[in-house]
Design a binder for these strands. Structure first.
Lengths: 210, 210
DNA sequence: TGTGGCGTTAACAAAATTGTTAAACAAAAT
DNA sequence: ATTTTGTTTAACAATTTTGTTAACGCCACA
């Protein structure tokens, strides 16, 4: 596999992700993807055989990246609040670059219900389990209002993901530019923490966007 | 317009909504819609001229229904918490029947950015304004932790909508049947209230699903 | 009874999208 | 220099999806 080849293949995947996961053009045609990458449409078939196979690769890659980052944010011997702060940071940052990724995954599941388990079961089940013990300990110690781990996680996921997903709507509501919207989201990391815990986050645990 | 005609037209719209907003088949073809309604595909063109025009009608109808219900839930002289409880109730119930409606709206906005303002601007801007004064009064009276109206609203919207939208994922995570999932969501109405206010809702303000 | 309008249908046409192929091209190896 | 290998392209073919049309059936009503 020559350098040029690897480059082109990567370019196509990259631009397809931009078009679909970033710009939210969920059903981009092969022509539109080729245009975005500035290459001939036939190359998509040369490298990926078919549109569908390319999609599967895109999905798997993005899924793995997210899975890895999320799992890491919730692993190790860190204190509970630090883990959750990391999680918020990671998910919001990912969402800032690929706001429509979740949207895409959901659409895919609806179109191919058989692949459902392939997508999330293993990974997400683990996510809840990564925090369950610590969460219950916090509650026992009176440091957190009692709440089932499932609800806590759903709250967290909702607060992190929805504002990214609903970007065009929220932007219009508040009459924001892209720039202002990103500022708003960065601020929201703290707001999410406060909403979930009822108190301020430790220190400046949140990173800025890449 | 004869009775049969009105019936068929309504049937097509109804079934299209089921397919797209309820089953999440976002890019249903005219054939699939016709099949769902059990009619000849040509009737879609007979009644709506083109697929696109039908979509516009579906969108407008669903949007108006939601707008009306949401606005009503937040209007009148009711106390703040009652309004918010009503809002949660309405949005979650709507989401139970049309979980992918928001998803669809977002996709549409991305495909046709020019229509953006048509969709939400007027309606949603009003939504925030419907609660701003009362929210600020609550904070002033020490009945609610200080929070900007925008953030409060985004929290609320996120917590209400995301779990519906992510139905297939969440169902898989917790290994739920459809039945169990609906129970979970009904329970969540209370959870959302508690998350947002940090305390229990008034009484049994929440209705069961229709 | 038969005529006209309306809803419905199947068959066809057009457009959009995906997939294939053969030839042109470039770079490296012989 | 020539072959070889791998990349890119334009042109074509196949498929899918949308849109159109002409004919059929049905019912109300003259």
């Amino acid at each position: 596999m020559s350098s040029a080849s690897a480059q082109t293949e990567e370019l196509i995947k990259e631009k397809a992700k931009v078009l679909i996961f970033q710009k939210g053009y969920l059903n981009a045609t092969t022509q539109e993807i080729a245009d975005e990458a500035g290459v001939n449409r036939a190359l998509i078939h040369y490298y990926f055989r078919s549109r569908e196979q390319m999609m599967e690769i895109l999905l798997e890659e993005a899924l793995n990246e997210k899975k890895m980052k999320v799992t890491e944010s919730l692993s190790g011997n860190k204190p509970f609040r630090e883990k959750i702060a990391n999680y918020i940071d990671v998910v919001v940052n990912l969402g800032l670059t690929y706001p429509y990724f979740t949207n895409f995954v959901i659409s895919e599941i609806n179109r191919h219900p058989d692949k459902e388990k392939l997508f999330c079961s293993k990974h997400k089940a683990k996510t809840v389990d990564l925090i369950r013990d610590q969460l219950e300990a916090e509650i026992k110690n009176g440091k957190l209002a009692p709440i089932p781990a499932e609800d806590f996680m759903v709250n967290l996921v909702s607060l992190c993901n929805y504002p990214l997903l609903a970007k065009p709507i929220l932007k219009t509501i508040h009459g924001m530019t892209d720039e202002a919207y990103y500022d708003f989201l960065r601020e929201r990391k703290r707001t999410i923490f406060i909403t979930v815990f009822g108190e301020e986050p430790p220190q400046s645990v949140f990173t800025s966007v890449n």
